[in-house]
């Protein structure tokens, strides 16, 4: 098992290094190829060439790309210095550079926004996992019934609905027409837990609906397949109660693929969070990245993207470990 974990750690680290190289390369090479200078994005179009050159020097953008990448990585682990003339700014580790727009360091900005995105993601994940799996199991057990068909139709519709459409509809009905939920600014959990939940609830449900639908379909298909296995018949033949046949014997094999998909989805959740945050006006990491993209704030965009990649890699890592725990065959291969 330790061997397995170590191997996974190595793969994850390699994965992260490659992703960081590619992302870094894309963000600092592509603008150049397209004819814009990153330093120009920083100082603005009206600046003199001398200003642009000075900024490029200060940010190290005049160096070859691999030197820039080296400095960037060094900044993440030990921090780095930005010198302009006699002024030296120390950027402590983990340093992702400074925003082109407001000169704030990127890392603390990310950390500031993180609680919002985590609140959204965790709430949604709980709802879709419970709701989706439960709906799938019930559907499979009552196969062919009206309940089953209704739930599967809802699930298919759920897969086909864009988050930003359901989000807006929810906003329109529940906030604007019915006043069940308050609009307005995001509220911190620590300040007012009820206000926090109130503000996030529609976001949770909207984001969860999409995933719950997929999970319900997957669980149903998996449950139907498992139910025809010999060992399930054996369990019934032994006289076990239906509860433990389904709950203990069948669920174990139903859950394995669910866990895999859950890991992948949890990693990519940041993508769904971007859309949800922009619909509901939540000031999370997704919003940060959209704002950064629209103002061409490269360091922030790079920081968010790498952060997202880290998220995915960690999620995949945890899933692999968990997978190995519930399915011993994985460890050997």
């Amino acid at each position: 098992m330790i061997n397995f974990i170590l191997r996974r750690v190595v793969t994850s680290v390699v994965l992260l290094i490659i992703i960081s190289v590619v992302t870094f390369g894309v963000f600092f090479m592509v603008p150049k190829l397209a004819g814009t200078n990153p330093a120009e994005l920083y100082v603005g179009k009206s600046a003199t060439p001398a200003d642009v050159a000075a900024t490029a020097r200060k940010l190290g953008l005049d160096q070859p790309i691999y030197v820039q990448y080296g400095r960037f990585v060094k900044g993440i682990f030990v921090g780095r210095e930005f010198a302009s003339g006699t002024n030296v700014n120390h950027c402590p580790a983990p340093c992702f550079g400074y925003s082109f727009r407001n000169d704030r360091p990127v890392w603390p900005t990310l950390i500031d926004r993180l609680p919002v995105t985590i609140s959204l993601a965790v709430g949604a994940a709980v709802i879709w996992l419970l709701g989706g799996v439960l709906a799938g199991v019930i559907s499979a057990l009552r196969r062919g019934s009206i309940l089953d068909r209704t739930m599967m139709i809802i699930a298919l519709a759920g897969v086909s609905l864009p988050i930003y459409f359901t989000g807006l509809l929810a906003q329109l009905w529940f906030v604007h027409d019915l006043h069940w939920f308050k609009g307005g600014e995001y509220i911190n959990f620590a300040d007012d837990p009820f206000g926090w939940a109130n503000k996030l609830f529609l976001g949770w449900v909207t984001l969860a609906l999409l995933y719950a639908a997929t999970y319900a379909r997957l669980t149903r298909a998996q449950m139907l397949e498992t139910a025809s296995e010999d060992y399930i018949r054996t369990a019934r033949a032994k006289g076990l109660r239906e509860r433990s046949v389904i709950g203990k014997h069948a669920m174990r094999s139903v859950l394995t693929p669910i866990v895999t998909v859950f890991g992948l989805d949890l990693g990519q959740l940041l993508g769904g969070a971007i859309l949800t945050e922009s619909v509901f006006g939540l000031p999370g990491i997704g919003r940060l990245s959209i704002d950064a993209v629209s103002t061409k704030d490269l360091p922030v965009v790079l920081g968010v993207t790498l952060f997202g990649a880290l998220f995915i890699v960690i999620a995949n890592f945890l899933v692999d470990i968990f997978y190995a725990v519930i399915d011993p065959r994985v460890r050997i291969s």
């Binding site: 490659i18 992302t23 963000f27 992948l264 971007i274 965009v301 790079l302 993207t305 990649a309 890699v313």
Partner: peptide, 21 residues
Amino acid sequence: MDLILAFPLILFAIALISVLP
């Protein structure tokens, strides 16, 4: 294939598109 699936898809896409003309 694992590598590509590990990219933060939407983030990467919007960032890449935004730096192109």
